[in-house]
Design a protein around this nucleic acid. Structure first.
Length: 430
RNA sequence: GGAGGAGUGGCUGAGUGGUCUAAAGCACCGGUCUUGAAAACCGGCGUGGGGCAACCCACCGUGAGUUCGAAUCUCACCUCCUCCGCCA
């Protein structure tokens, strides 16, 4: 949610953001009108309350009764205005950053960096679903019988590799030295404060998900109505509210978390898309970074996040591109968004493996997470979230980039210590 | 799942229908005193909305209700604690 005062002072900026983010249909003029009406209605309520307090002090029962009716009517009117106002306000997207390219859809995204050499094969590289089936490490058929489409059993070394990725990522993110190296390479001036590892809940109240601006579209969420609980689509959803209704002292920032959790997505709008393999699953595991920073540090904090993402892919030797996402393709709550697309030779294309969202104060405003400044003032904290490893997609990149002519897969060096020092994945024999 | 208890400012905690405009203490900030600090004393010290301002309004877990009047009474919900049951 944007600050209403900001919207009133910068209607043109907001109008442009709505247009460039393809969110037409939001009635900004109505919102501005409602803001005025709400102010008037609030004044009315406050006026009646004052008279009512006077009547009570005088023990004037008659006047009190009348004022009670008046108050009820005035409050109803206020509530009605408030309800409509909020319904429009929460639809208004965040303002894109100055360096965000304007574009209609993903065609407007800009490749800002590329890293790595695409592997050369003297054979036709296979897609991960074939490699995984042949090695016995991906079982989609039995999973389909047991759970349905978009579910998978991961077995053997692929299952072990998941834990290897978790450990590798944790070892980088919890190390002040590793972060300092990234900061230095990128020439950033941000804190080298390590990330705090978190295992968050995977179910949450729908109300809190709503405050994260992530409940809609509800069709994308698994929702357990009986208990009013939503299954998270990312650890971001439960880590973002870690400080809701708190005012964090300025000197404690930044606060950084690295969360590991399963993510659940209905993929409602993706029927028939990426149905083979494990790219688009109803359930997958993911390491997610989340941080709370001072507004003046927010953009640099995001650059650190992207730097961490790059380091994590470099450690695996996976070629990637860093994309700056354009207005038409970025998320509504984002101020700036980067994606990392990794090379997947089996599909002869780059696919999204990581994303980095800088929200500014957009989420924090509704979560009521504030900074308490040393001078006593307060303002919404600035929030960043970004993928560390989306495990499934990272496993795809490893399988496809490290495949060999004989059908085996080499284990990336950085992961070998976590897989018994082995150089090659073993075939699963049942 | 069952029974009982409790939610009040940053913290502790008083308040069971009307000067509550929420006591008191701690913490914090400013001042006096001091070479400096501590102690002592004096003053300040929540959030949001409106107003140029004096000031006004709202907020005692959340929401509804009773009453001229609710922190206080009623109902629902949420959270925490204790006990019982079940359980990795």
């Amino acid at each position: 949610m944007l600050d209403l005062q900001f919207i009133r002072e910068n209607p043109d900026l907001v109008r442009t953001a709505i247009k460039n983010k393809n969110k037409e249909g939001i009635d900004l003029d109505r919102l501005l009108q409602l803001a005025e009406e709400r102010k008037a209605a609030a004044g009315e309520v406050s006026d009646i309350n004052r008279k009512r307090n006077e009547a009570q002090a005088a023990r004037d029962a008659e006047a009190g009764k009348n004022l009670k009716e008046e108050l009820r009517a005035a409050e109803d009117k206020y509530q009605q205005i408030e309800k409509e106002l909020v319904s429009i306000l929460i639809k208004i997207p965040n303002i894109p950053s100055a360096d965000t390219p304007v574009g209609p859809d993903e065609s407007g995204n800009v490749v800002v960096r590329e890293w790595g050499e695409k592997p050369q094969f003297n054979f036709e590289p296979k897609a991960h679903w074939d490699i995984g089936r042949d090695l016995g490490v991906i079982d989609s058929e039995k999973a389909a019988e047991v759970s349905g489409a978009r579910f998978t059993y991961l077995k053997g070394d692929l299952a072990l590799m998941q834990f290897a990725l978790v450990q590798l990522a944790m070892s980088v993110l919890t190390s002040r030295e590793e972060l300092a190296k990234i900061i230095q390479e990128k020439g950033l001036s941000v804190s080298d404060k390590p990330f705090i590892p978190v295992l968050p809940p995977v179910m949450m109240r729908s109300q809190v998900m709503n405050r994260m601006a992530r409940l809609d579209p509800i069709d994308e969420r698994y929702y357990y109505e009986k208990d009013d609980l939503v299954f998270v689509g990312s650890a971001e959803h439960t880590m973002g509210p870690l400080h809701m209704d708190e005012a964090i002292a300025e000197e404690r920032l930044p606060i950084r978390y690295i969360g590991y959790s399963t993510a659940f997505r209905r993929e409602a709008g993706a029927a028939g898309k990426d149905t083979r393999g494990i790219l688009r699953q109803h359930q997958f595991d993911k390491l997610e970074m989340e941080s709370f920073a001072k507004p003046e540090d927010g953009l640099a904090e995001q650059e650190l996040f992207v730097g961490v993402q790059e380091r994590l892919m470099q450690l695996l030797g996976i070629p990637y591109q860093v994309l700056l996402i354009c207005t038409g393709d970025m998320g509504g709550p984002d101020h700036r968004q980067f994606d990392i697309n990794s090379w997947m030779p089996g599909q002869n294309t780059y696919r999204e493996t990581q994303t980095s969202d800088y929200m500014g104060g957009y989420q924090a405003r509704r979560l009521n997470t504030k900074i308490k400044r040393q001078d006593g003032t307060s303002e919404p904290v600035h929030m960043n979230d970004a993928t560390a490893y989306a495990i499934g997609r990272t496993l795809i990149a490893i399988l496809e980039n490290y495949q060999q002519a004989d059908g085996s897969v080499t284990i990336p060096e950085a992961l070998r210590p976590y897989l018994g020092g082995r150089e090659k994945m073993e075939k699963v024999i049942i």
